[in-house]
Design a protein around this nucleic acid. Structure first.
Lengths: 125, 125
DNA sequence: CGGGATCCTGACGGATACTG
DNA sequence: CAGTATCCGTCAGGATCCCG
């Protein structure tokens, strides 16, 4: 018997949301950058290096909205804003790192599969 | 000491690739649809329900290129094409399901965080 | 049945300039 | 320093039509 379409979509809904969050271009890098403690805005930007100011702001805001990141403003001069992972954010590290280990372990096999696939595609043309 | 930007980006490269693959709109649903064995093209389409023909073709091709899915053509009339997870594709199920369990376990907490965040945002305006 | 080709739209994301 | 505002190009992804 086939799975019910509604159930499949419904069961996967939270999974798809968190995957959309974590599967975007920058979230994982930010999580890694905040792994070892709080960091300031430009500090994160420097660590990642290639992220634009805009996307850092947007991604941090999204992660804050999802409760993964906590933002703390210090009313100093010049202003200072710290970002850190919440308990929820830290707990996300584990499944992400497991996926990371899978990715690294199978990186070569994937690359090989891609080469073979591309070669077949080429010789068909 | 801060992590080296180059190392951070380089270490995360395979992780980001597989997250981009698995974090797209449909890959996870396809993996789940193929969990219990091979399925035909329109069978997958029916199970997922809301996916367009185009995106199903594209996503399946991408997953085939990455070595996650195997495509088998039967020269019958009408033609029949089966898709199934490869060993690599099946092995991906474990980390995905772990992430899935995390997502489901923390779904409520995330929703609450979003509500609070949106409420604060609203009252600021 | 299982696609390929094409058109169209909105969302993602980079660059730049400005502000408190 | 830590953003916000704006402009703009690219591309994911839906709808539609066609073909072996």
């Amino acid at each position: 018997m086939l799975p019910d379409p509604v159930n499949l979509l419904e069961t996967c809904r939270p999974v798809r949301h968190i995957l959309a969050r974590v599967g975007d271009k920058w979230s994982v890098l930010i999580v890694m950058a905040l792994r070892d403690g709080p960091r300031r805005f430009n500090e994160i930007k420097r660590v990642i290096g290639t992220i634009s100011q805009r996307m850092l702001t947007l991604t941090l805001k999204g992660m804050e909205r999802d409760g993964l990141v906590k933002r703390t403003v210090f009313a100093t001069k010049p202003p200072r804003v710290d970002y850190e992972l919440t308990a929820l954010g830290h707990s996300l590290c584990e499944p992400i790192e497991q996926l990371g280990r899978w990715a690294i372990a199978n990186e070569a096999e994937i690359a090989t599969a891609q080469m073979i696939f591309d070669q077949k595609t080429d010789e068909a043309a």
